[in-house]
């Protein structure tokens, strides 16, 4: 039982990170109806932004602690947010109204561009780097074999705060209303006088910023970073979004937690080598049994 609880806590904290990344996928899908394949790589860039910020003389002089954490989170979120906006503007905007597959392939192109340009020796380099300490890791709670550390607390607090913030942003603000309208019908929203280009940029900014926050949380827990590290968390977060019902924000969050838990449980109870396979198996089952996901609504094709 104790071990199960431990696995569950580990799984949910990993899942919280997936959920943050999944939100970006689902928001972008909600508005533009396409899978931003490069989202996982934006996440990767987030860890490198954190890496370079942590290695500046100023941040190093602060040392690990709350100030450093605030700086590095802000930097990664703003940096990733801007990167998302730039990617959309340069690569996806020219393809508005083109077939979905054209955009999907472009997204794969953007993804490769970030991964392989990152590997160039004068960019990030192909070798893994060690992510510096943001805050010291302490044991917060220890009951028998059950251990909860400060990182897990930080992950939960940051992830849940950001999700609640996102909810407020979407439900209570003007731009949030515009975003909701756009995700119901982009064309109609534009006819109603909503600047849909601004809404799309905003969506990319917020979605990518959440990935940036996820990146720092991830790199704190798994401090080896490399230019290809975004692929798997990206795919898993995407699967979380599909599981929850792509386009559905609550679904993305719930899906993230389920995927994280399923992965950790499989690694703990069955075999660590199957931790990726289980996630893909979930994807295939959900797509075949209920492609609209747990919270999604099925649509009928108009003839």
């Amino acid at each position: 039982m104790e071990e199960f609880l431990q696995q569950l806590i580990n799984g949910l904290s990993l899942g919280a990170i997936y959920a943050l990344i999944a939100l970006g996928y689902t928001m972008i899908y909600g508005v533009l109806r396409f899978i931003n394949f490069a989202h996982g790589d934006v996440f990767m860039i987030g860890t490198y932004i954190g890496f370079y910020v942590l290695n500046t003389a100023f941040v190093q002089s602060l040392g690990p602690g709350a100030e450093t954490a605030v700086i590095v989170f802000l930097a990664a979120m703003v940096g990733c947010g801007l990167l998302g906006v730039i990617i959309e503007f340069l690569a996806y905007r020219p393809l508005r109204n083109r077939p979905k597959l054209t955009v999907l392939i472009t997204a794969i192109g953007v993804s490769f561009f970030l991964e392989y340009t990152g590997q160039l020796p004068f960019v990030f380099g192909a070798d893994p780097r060690t992510f510096p300490t943001v805050v010291e890791k302490t044991t917060v709670l220890q009951a028998g074999g059950l251990v909860i550390d400060s990182y897990q607390i930080i992950i939960f607090v940051v992830a849940i705060a950001l999700m609640l913030g996102l909810r407020l942003l979407i439900m209570k603000t003007r731009i949030g209303t515009a975003l909701r309208a756009s995700s119901m019908n982009l064309k109609a929203a534009s006819l109603m006088g909503i600047n849909t280009n601004a809404v799309i940029s905003f969506t990319f900014f917020v979605g990518s910023a959440l990935a940036g926050a996820g990146a720092i949380l991830y790199a704190m827990s798994y401090p080896k970073i490399n230019p290809l590290m975004g692929i798997l968390p990206g795919l898993k977060a995407f699967i979380a979004a599909v599981l929850g019902g792509i386009g559905n924000i609550l679904g993305a969050a719930v899906g993230g937690f389920i995927i994280g838990a399923a992965e950790t449980m499989t690694a703990g109870y069955i075999s660590p080598t199957l931790r990726d396979a289980i996630v893909f198996a979930i994807l295939i089952i959900i797509l075949i049994v209920k492609p609209s996901g747990l919270f999604g609504r099925g649509g009928t094709e108009k003839v």
């Binding site: 392939i105 472009t106 794969i108 192109g109 490769f112 561009f113 392989y116 340009t117």
Partner: peptide
């Protein structure tokens, strides 16, 4: 890098 740019 060239490959991915060319694709885009």
């Amino acid at each position: 890098t060239i490959y991915s740019l060319a694709l885009i």
